[in-house]
Design a protein around this nucleic acid. Structure first.
Lengths: 207, 207
DNA sequence: GTCTATAAGAAGATAGAC
DNA sequence: GTCTATCTTCTTATAGAC
């Protein structure tokens, strides 16, 4: 059974991520879980405390899921061998899974959307958004490319540039789906084409 | 001399784009231009009307500037010849200009940030954000690549995939600079590396 | 076109009964 | 731990003098 505190966190995350912190009233949050507004204050001492708790809890959930999913952002080097043996189809499957997780997992998607709406008001939240959805994935992929054979020759792009070239289009399509859910089908198609052309461009010349 | 109406639009855009619509009070807007809150209602019949006027006016300004800057999003095909004669250095200069315009021009950057903060509340605004900062640039570049010689061979990526591969990293770096202005120097470096590796990858094999 | 005064409502938060 | 009643402050917006 879910505690009232957990219910508050869950519903407030959904509301904040859709309408923004200031647009959502405490009454609205209370209504969503079937209690009256003043009862919220038995669990949090202020509206802001709910927001802060969401940040704390969901960031933790994000990290745990990321680690479990195998996309432990820390282990890029160890994963490189597995990746270098991958063909295009396997890579696309992996990218599609990452995409689904980012886009549809309530916590991960809600956190990103909530941070998106607060990014210009608070430097810390801006930094968190950058870290979780830009730096960590980029750094992971940079390690991957650094350890893969194709990066060996000196005329080809650096692992950092490769990581950006690979991840930025994925993130780009994700952002668009965030605000236009019906675009997902087309985004999946472009995702496939992106992976295909990326593989063709950067793995063909292995001899 | 700037009219009061124009002053309101300008200052409200700045405030809305930094703090979000609901966080900014009409009193705050009035204060910024040196009048009292009720005086605003001589120029707009409601707070929302200010927001709507901003959207209308700045979208118009965006289009005019885009056309003047030569990045008329409509003329991709005509520009293709000019581009196919470009070397890496010229292309980078152009990309840097686009980047500066998107990032620093008050209207263009303010509009993007304001739309970013409202994108989940209003489908129309979401569509506008997608159109101005995703579809239009992508479509322009797609036309460019379609008309350039390098796209002729059938095994290489489609113009659409090329446009995404070229533009998404630029947009990615832009979004990061939006919320972390001190990142701009590093972003410029990555931008240069991106253009360099893109040119190397896709223009070398011309014979 | 700006001002002061003020209305009318909604917001976050507290007190105290149950 | 939830409720009703209430407080205080802030918000958008209007009325009417100058």
């Amino acid at each position: 059974m879910q505690s009232t505190r957990e219910k508050i966190i869950q519903h407030a995350l959904l509301l904040f991520s859709r309408k923004g912190y200031h647009t959502v009233s405490v009454q609205e949050i209370a209504q969503a879980i079937g209690i009256r507004a003043p009862s919220l204050y038995n669990h949090f001492h202020s509206k802001r405390a709910i927001f802060d708790a969401i940040i704390h809890d969901t960031t933790e959930t994000y990290r745990q899921q990321a680690a479990r999913i195998g996309l432990g952002w820390q282990s890029g080097r160890q994963d490189a061998q597995a990746f270098s043996g991958m063909d295009e189809k396997q890579l696309l499957t992996m990218v599609n899974h990452l995409f689904s997780w980012f886009l549809h997992e309530p916590t991960v998607s809600g956190l990103r959307r909530m941070l998106t709406l607060s990014q210009f008001e608070d430097r810390e939240l801006a930094a968190l958004l950058t870290k979780l959805y830009m730096e960590d994935p980029l750094h992971y992929q940079e390690q991957l490319f650094a350890a893969m054979p194709l990066a060996a020759d000196s005329t080809s792009p650096s692992p950092k540039a490769l990581a950006l070239a690979f991840y930025a289009p994925i993130y780009f399509l994700l952002l668009r789906c965030d605000r236009e859910p019906e675009y997902e089908d087309e985004a999946r198609g472009m995702l496939a084409e992106h992976v295909r052309s990326f593989c063709m461009t950067y793995t063909k010349q292995e001899e």
